[in-house]
Every structure is written in structure tokens, then in C-alpha cells.
Design a binder for these strands. Sequence first.
DNA 1: AACGATTTACAAATCGTTTGCAAATCGAGC
DNA 2: GCTCGATTTGCAAACGATTTGTAAATCGTT
Lengths: 336, 336
Amino acid sequence: MKATTIYDVAKEAGVSIATVSNAINGKGKVSKKKRDEIFKVMERLQYQPSVIASALMGKKTYTIGLLIPDVSNPFFSEIARTVEDLAHSEGYSVIVCSTDNKDDRVEKYIRLLEQKSVDGILIGTGVENADILTQLAEKSLPIVMIAREAVAMPVHSVLTDDFKGGALAAEHLLGGGHRQIAVLSENFKVTSSYERVRGFRFALFEAGIAVDDESIISCDSSIKDGKRAAAVLIRGENRPSAIFCCNDLLAIGALQAAKEAGVRVPEQLSIIGFDDTILSTVTNPALTTVAQPMDQMVKLAFDLLIRSAENTDEIKQRIVMQPELIVRESTSTPAN
Amino acid sequence: MKATTIYDVAKEAGVSIATVSNAINGKGKVSKKKRDEIFKVMERLQYQPSVIASALMGKKTYTIGLLIPDVSNPFFSEIARTVEDLAHSEGYSVIVCSTDNKDDRVEKYIRLLEQKSVDGILIGTGVENADILTQLAEKSLPIVMIAREAVAMPVHSVLTDDFKGGALAAEHLLGGGHRQIAVLSENFKVTSSYERVRGFRFALFEAGIAVDDESIISCDSSIKDGKRAAAVLIRGENRPSAIFCCNDLLAIGALQAAKEAGVRVPEQLSIIGFDDTILSTVTNPALTTVAQPMDQMVKLAFDLLIRSAENTDEIKQRIVMQPELIVRESTSTPAN
DNA sequence: AACGATTTACAAATCGTTTGCAAATCGAGC
DNA sequence: GCTCGATTTGCAAACGATTTGTAAATCGTT
């Protein structure tokens, strides 16, 4: 059975389609009597305007895209959920795209979203070449980067002060008396991780502590890889008394490596994560970590996205939020 | 700058739009010479056909909807990721909708997806009234339920034998010598949970063990609620030696309640979960749980969805998969 | 009753595709 | 060179909405 169209409603209500359209959108004047009649018919026929057709006439599609590395990663699935709630409350739907941080996927998905005429794209994954974003900007497709740096790109962005976050972690460890400290990082191409490590090292440097390069390991962002990398750190000849991990996944890997090696956390080894995902509350010991105010960030980013749909060529904003240290159980003063 | 349309390509290539369309879709015959010319122009102009316009002509939108209770819940975010990968590999995008198990949301989101002319909907959340599904079936909008029962509904479904899963958990606990057993369940309106509990109790019944009603608690599906509910069980006068939780979230709540009450898991209390999410590998002790073969299930469901788009009014299938017990560290023989 | 001033309703054009059918082109056979 | 199928191409009508300009209906005044 075909869906009912505006023609069916018009015929049934004895008016023209223009009048039905006006009644629905509250545009031109429609007498109360006809309007009531039209709504009654719409109700009876279960009429629902086709978003497709009205999008073709240049109206919005009420759909936005969300680009993230991986929805099944708790950090991003929490973002996705917040985006979704915000979006739905304003009548939008969201198409989720997991890029696995692969550049070609980023590009492919952006093209796809463009073809589908989304009203905007929220990007929470790294973007290599600014070209594609410039093209979209020219087509005035709103884009907002979230939790990722976007230097020299024609887009709004809202992110955390990752450098500061790294420093926060360093200060906490320093305060606990740690001197032998290692770092577990995601691939340095991920700017947020790079900044975190930079901030971390800077704070240590200021305190007169050096981190030798062998104690900084970078690997893929997964529990498994974190575990493997942490294992070599732990088995190494001068085992660190603390490990700073660029995200919670890596920190959990480290926790597992420690457990397997029989070293107790936090008594023999302190571990600190980043992101404050649900995972960090679930481990035992619970993970000390650095939190980003994600809900606020997402809200800001979403508003920016929707607003910039109306108000294009406005100056691109770069909003940076402050991270916060969340002390739980995985860190302490070193035993020695 | 406006996007390039099929007209631009046609004019530039010196042919009609019909020919361009044919060249793209490989429909009517187009001479090699013109086809090459057309593709060259498309390349040069960066032409991308508008999905909107072609959808209006009755073609597919290459978009599907995914209805789940909550993307930020690891069980569902893992499903979402699998769906997404499958979808993208076939050129589809997926709109994710979190329903929080609220009936009105389910209905609202389905209507929304319908308006947007998605090619199909994958439902992983409970649906109260079959009416709405019947309507969609009449409009021949393909629907597949996943991990949820759909009795008397005109849709395909692929799910786990939850009854069996519950029994598996019971047998494991029984094998460990437990006799004093409690159950932590999600709201019984969630059919999968209901079945799990039913299967669990049945297996105990067959072994001659009874679970008194006070030892079966149902609450919202979250760590916090699980913790609260488990706490009363643990503090109760005759503390169980084992708790069967209908999903991993509740099990983690139980784990936390135990930790807080100072009872050791699994020495003093065994806890078993359900779903085998990433969370169950992260806790300490790692969670014994019942796994559903989600990847397979999602693949099956997706294929059913896409295939039933072509082949409508085919008989509705109900595929049921077998659950598997995953023994980790949170269960053991009771201490007494 | 007739007038202009307002409302209200409508017909037609438009958005960017697909598609059935007619027109044009082509190659081959005589 | 002409005719006849076969093959390519293009025209024009959808698809389901929005929007604009204009005609018709309504209203209040005199």
C-alpha cells in the first residue's frame, strides 16, 4: 500500500495542495475552518509529509552525521548518546559513522553524508587533509569538530585543554611522590594524545623529572594493545612506579598487565587514565583518570552546528574546556 | 556554491540528462565513447548524485534505522558497531535511535524513520503494540527484530535462546555446589530477561532447588540500580552464595555492592552475568557470563533485512541461536 | 449596490532524479 | 543510395513536497 501524499489529503479535504502545505507549515493565511478540516483529514489518513520531498525543495533533511573512531568504544558511545538525545529533542536524526581513525574512511563517509544532504556533520575523529572540509565549507555544509584539534580548518571546534589534562595527571603523580614514570600513548598522529603527552612531560620537566624515551610507548588504542605495551614496561629492568595512559582503554590494558604480572595496583604501581568513561568506574581498583566535560562539550558543539546552519560565514569559534582530575583507587604514593 | 547536478554534467558532456543517468546506473545502452566522456566530466565536476532526488523517484535511500534501548550501553554499542560495518560495506548508512525502552519513544522513532523513508528498520528493543509493525508491514517496510522476542508480529526475528541461557547459568552454579541462589533481573516486561529468569528457575527446579520470591529482585538495568538491589540481597539475613544477574550491567552493580560490603567474590559470593560485553572482561574479578553470538546474529538480521527489501511477503522467519557459558573469575564453589 | 482593501485559495513552477517511449543514428544488405 | 532492424539517444512526464504570483472570495464603507 502506498503512503498517503499531500494530494490525497487535499482531495479528501476538498482544497488544493497549496492550502494543505500552508496549513501544515503555518505559512500563508488559511481560514480556521479549512485548517481544522485539513488536520482532521490528515489525522484520519495518517498523513506524514515526506522528508525526502521537502528536502528536495531545499528544506532541511533534519539529519546530521556523527563521525567518530568507533561507536563501540565507550568514550564515543557516550558521546553518541548525548548527541542523539540533543538531536532528537530538536527533531533531528543522527547517522553514526565509525572511522577507526582511517583517513580514507573519513573521506568516504563525509562524501556519503554529503550525498545524503545531511544538515551538518559533527566530527570527533582526526581529519588529515583540510581540503575536504574547505570544500564542504564552500558548499556551506556546517561542520563542528569535537574533542579534536582543527588547526587551519574552516570549522568550529570545541575541545578540551589536553595539554592541561596531561599536566594535571603529572601533578597528581608528582604529588604522590612518583619519580619513575612511564607513558602509554595512542598513536601520536592523534593530536589529542600528542597534546596530553606533551603537557604531561612539560609538567614533569618543570619539576625537574625527565622521562626517557624508552619509557614512552605508543600503540593502538585498545585494551589488548595497551596490555601488551604495558607488559614490556612492567617486565622491563627498571619498572616505573607509575604509568600515565592517554585514555582509559590503555589504562585498563595496563591494569590487566599488572594483574597478570602479579604487581599490585596501586601499592606497587600507580596507573592513571584519561576520559573518565564508564569503564574507569568498573575496574577494580577503580581508575584514577582525567575527565573531559563531555556533556557540556557535546551540547556546545551541537548548538554551534545547528546555529551555523542558519548563520553561515560567521567567524569560526574554537572553544576549549577545562579537564578535571578524578581521583579513584588506582594511584597512590609509591611503596619504596 | 550550489552542488553540481546531473544537468551540469549533461550540458558539459553534450548529452541529455537521461543519458547521464543511464551511464551512471548502467541501465539503457550507452555507447562506450559517451560513457567515458560522461565519467570524465563527472570526475572533473566532482558530481555526486543526490540521494534525495533519486529516493523521491522510488529508489532506495540506502539508509536503515537501528532501534535499541541505549547506544551508550556496551551491549548495544557493540551491536551498533557491527550493524554499521555491515551496512557500510553494502553502501548503507544507519540512523541510531535510543529508546530507553520507552514505548512512546519506540513509536515516535519508528514514525520518524518512516518519514525519512529508510529502507528498513532493525529493532533491538521491546515493542509493545504490534499494530505499528503491522502498519509498516503493509507499507512493506522491512523490519527485523534482533535479540528480542516478536510473538505474533509480522516481522523476522533473530534471537538467542534466553531460556537456555538462564539454564546454562543455573547449571554452572549448581555444578559449583551453590544452593542458596538469588536473581537480579531487569524489568520483567523485557521478554529476554523474563525468559532468562524462567530458564534459570526451571533448571534449579529440576535440580530440586527452589528460589523463594524474595530472592528474585527486578530493577532498572543500570550499574547503579543493580548495586542498590544487590546490596539488599547481600545485607539480607540469609545471604545467597550466588547471584544470577540478567545482564552484565546488573552483575557489575552486584560486584560493586559486594566490594562495598566487604564480601569477597568469588570466595564468599559468586556472581554471574549475561551478554559477555566488554565490561565483563574489565572487572576484577572478571565476570563469568553467558554469551550470545551477537556478531552472527547481527549478520543474520542484517541480511534478512536487506533481502526482505527485495523479496517482500516472504514467510517470516524466527531464527534462534544458542548461548554459551563463558567462565571467568567471578564464580566458584561456595565457601561453607 | 458598488467600491477598494483584505483575506484566502489555487495553478503552476521548481527541486534533481528515473524511466517509458519516440526519435535519431547506425550498420548492413541489396 | 535506400530500406530495414538494431542500437543509441533525448524528450517529457513523473515523484511529493514548497513557493510565488494571481485570481477569487470576503469584508467593510459609503
